[in-house]
Design a protein around this nucleic acid. Structure first.
Lengths: 346, 346
DNA sequence: GGACGTGGGAGACCAATGAACAAGTCAGTG
DNA sequence: CACTGACTTGTTCATTGGTCTCCCACGTCC
């Protein structure tokens, strides 16, 4: 239990004042310290294993080097982890640390505000607010005036800068890869949630067909809850008929997993008889289905990294978040090609 | 950008000294403050939305109320999220916040030490060190003397307290559920990794058989890498013969997922023709396979919560971690019953 | 009028930073 | 040769926002 060494200990060891130690170690421009003294200070600091007390430093400089990270339901989705990782690695590379708070998605507006207040009391320099899935939300009032960026969601009041995935381009590239493989009867399994992703992906589906000169057939779009059983049900309806589509774009990988089972039960081989494309790139599913699922990746790591970069730039006065609030920044969703797409049969 | 309110502002608003404000708000036992004054202080604090500056507080009291959380590969496994959640919720309920650092599993011992040093410079009151999967590791040297607990791993030097899952009991209950269903020819799909879980689960398998008076048949144990393709390969060998087992215990849910496919290809119905039990309770897989997989849950949330509780108790002097270092604390792995187990055919 | 109780404030302290200042050296200068 | 000014090399001290120990003023009671 060696009580931690302070700047005083270093000063004593080097035979100089604490100020000199501070000046040397921070390498301040106005420091007037001789080379030999500098070396003594560095030696002493090294020997004692000195690291500055970041709280005292923060108190004095009014900058904590901490970023608050509010995450809705940290655990329930592996995605959240990627966002955190992107933010953490970026922040750390720039000398910042992340203080994390879990916020229940069911929490009241009051509880959200107290999450923010907690972080503010901790003197964080800025706040990253990440939601579990892409949606629009009303940010806590006390977030105003604090450098902040929203990850994977949009602010209804348009006062906070945000970054979201490019659902439309992602979905279009998913459908396009089907078209490119030669398919002309393409179905879609969509879902019942009223979230931006639902609308964007469906819209992109229609646009991609139109651009390719294909007619949109409402019968080829089946709607179910966005989980595995829903995917199974929707795919069963879609595939169990003579004029079935030769390819299906699934709202997400979970629904695709259900669709795989539907295909198997109907004796349809993937991708020889029917091709599938998913969305989300949930590794556990997409990589492990047989055949592995071609899908679209959500840029979680990238959103976390982008958000941290912007936030820190703003904190350090390099940029102004204000110019970014008008509309969300959208990041590309790359297609991840695996083995579930082939040309149509015959 | 309303500059945040300090204790001085509250004091001015209430017409008292900062000392009095501090005394009232902290409700200190030795405070000698009249009821009416107390009310004025509370009112003023409320009105101004005052929250104490936790850094200044920490500096003075030598207690930051922050816990450092080092997580190996935050993102790669959904499990890590559960540990963080357990720790975060527990910590917050007791007034602590979590500062998170991601540590690459491939990182050097030096980089691990600098992770710890980072946290120590931040004046965290204690450190939680969580690994990606249960294993033995050499803790960073500078962790000595700091309240700390290891989550999901054991310290080779036995100087740090740790909490791990009860692999043996968990695996035994998995095998037992098969025995209870009436199976006597039970196979196991195990893996090639040299980690405690591999050995414990295999040992438990043998013990459970022995206790039930069943003979262990080495041919019914197949070894492969612990991923989906490995499970497929192992299960194919196990199931593609006349004297196949009627039930299989899989090392983990991913291997079980592969085993499901092997069974399907052989025309075996689950659970009518062959029963399966997994391990890990990876929701995405276990819940969504068809039929849903009966498996054993790793107590990630509970380990995180237990670790945070012990750590905070130690920080607050309520308990001594020293008494816990001798051997890891083991937490129960509950069986999660779903639909993949039935009596043997015939 | 001294002891005691009550209500509240002054000021040191935590570990750093940074503006202002001081001591010593040396060259240039009248 | 003494004085000045510039430069070098550090140091002093206030400051950050709280906490906590000790002290003080004012009444009251015996």
């Amino acid at each position: 239990m060696n009580k931690s060494v302070g700047i005083k200990d270093v000063a004593a060891a080097a035979g100089v004042s604490v100020t000199t130690v501070s000046h040397v170690l921070n390498d301040v421009s106005y420091a007037r310290v001789g080379a030999e003294t500098r070396e003594r200070v560095h030696d002493a600091a090294q020997r004692l294993g000195y690291g500055p007390n970041r709280m005292a430093q923060a108190l004095r400089t009014q900058r904590s080097g901490m970023i608050g990270f509010i995450s809705e339901e940290i655990a329930t989705t592996p995605h959240a982890g990627r966002i955190i990782l992107g933010a953490e690695e970026t922040a750390r590379a720039r000398g910042y640390n992340i203080m994390i708070i879990n916020s229940a998605i069911t929490g009241s507006q009051d509880s959200r505000e107290s999450d923010v207040a907690d972080l503010l009391d901790r003197q964080v320099d800025g706040i990253l607010y990440a939601t579990m899935y892409h949606r629009r939300l009303a940010v806590p009032k006390n977030l105003a005036g604090v450098p902040a960026v929203l990850v994977d969601s949009e602010d209804t009041s348009q006062t906070v800068c945000s970054v979201i995935p490019d659902e439309v381009r992602g979905a279009r590239s998913a459908v396009q890869t089907l078209i490119d493989a030669g398919h002309s009867r393409i179905g879609m399994i969509t879902n019942t949630d009223d979230v931006p992703a639902t609308h964007s992906r469906l819209r992109a589906f229609k646009e991609a067909l139109a651009d390719a000169g294909l007619v949109f057939d409402g019968n080829l779009v089946q709607t179910e809850p966005s989980e595995v059983p829903g995917g199974y049900a929707a795919a069963s309806r879609l595939l169990d008929r003579p004029d079935r589509p030769t390819a299906v774009f699934c709202y997400n990988d979970r629904m695709a997993m259900g669709a795989y089972r539907a295909a198997a039960e109907l004796g349809l081989r993937i991708p020889q008889d029917v091709s599938f494309v998913g969305f989300d790139n949930q590794q556990l599913i997409a990589e492990n289905l047989y055949p592995a699922l071609t899908t679209v990746a959500l840029p979680h790591y990238e959103m976390g990294a982008w958000a941290a970069t912007q936030l820190i730039d703003a904190i350090e006065g390099k940029t102004d978040l204000g110019s970014l609030v008008a509309r969300p920044t959208i990041l590309d969703c790359p297609l991840v090609v695996r083995d579930s797409v082939a040309p149509p049969p015959g």
